[in-house]
Amino acid sequence: MLGKLNNDEIDQVLTTGIVGRIGCTDKGKVYIVPVNYAFNNTYLIAHSQEGMKIEMMRKNPHICFQVDEMINLTNWRSVVVWGDYEEVTDAKEKYYAMKFLVSRLSQLRVSETAGVAEMHREMAMQDASTNIIRPVIYRIRIHEKTGRFEKE
């Protein structure tokens, strides 16, 4: 059976997921890339090093985000979110957003590319003035979301 997810089911998929795909555009070029994230019932929180994705979202903050929950090809849930990229720059906000993201990801076994160890070090060195490359912490302000499912 195919169907639509209600708002609570959409939020459940967003809450339990940790990897989604973010889509951004610049000058007609579409870029879709997987990101680790955490959902706090208001925003999607994520981090990244400076690069194409961050540059594109700074120029055009309107994004699309997609996450799947796959059991098999006949049992799945999928959510699509539209929203706006917002870089977290306030030191206190950045600390708490990073703490939330780290707490969510540190409960799971994740790839070294997720940068959890680096985020732990970053949090420990908040007051240190070093030349380490600091990740960009950002959130997605959600404007619209939809979800579908198939259940055998």
Rank of each mutant, 00 (worst) to 15 (best):
M1L: 13
M1N: 14
M1W: 15
G3M: 00
K4Y: 15
N6T: 09
D8E: 09
E9W: 07
I10Y: 03
D11E: 07
D11M: 04
V13Y: 03
T15Y: 01
T15F: 06
T16M: 13
T16L: 13
T16D: 11
G17M: 06
G17A: 03
I18C: 06
I18P: 00
V19L: 06
C24I: 03
V30P: 11
V30N: 05
V35D: 06
A38K: 10
N40Y: 04
N40T: 04
N40I: 02
N41Y: 15
T42G: 13
H47E: 05
S48F: 02
G51V: 00
M52R: 03
K53C: 02
K53G: 02
I54T: 05
M56F: 05
M57Y: 06
K59L: 08
N60E: 14
P61L: 06
H62M: 01
I63S: 07
D68T: 06
E69I: 09
L73I: 11
V79M: 10
V80N: 10
V80K: 09
V81T: 05
G83D: 01
E86H: 02
V88T: 00
T89D: 11
T89Y: 11
A91C: 12
E93N: 10
Y96D: 01
A97I: 05
F100L: 15
L101I: 07
S103M: 02
Q107M: 06
Q107K: 11
A114W: 05
G115I: 03
G115T: 04
V116W: 05
M119H: 10
M119G: 04
A124Y: 10
A124W: 09
A124E: 00
Q126N: 11
A128D: 06
A128P: 06
S129G: 10
N131H: 08
N131T: 00
I132S: 11
P135Q: 05
P135F: 09
P135N: 12
Y138L: 07
R139I: 01
H143V: 07
E144M: 09
K145N: 07
K145Q: 09
K145E: 05
R148A: 13
R148M: 10
F149G: 13
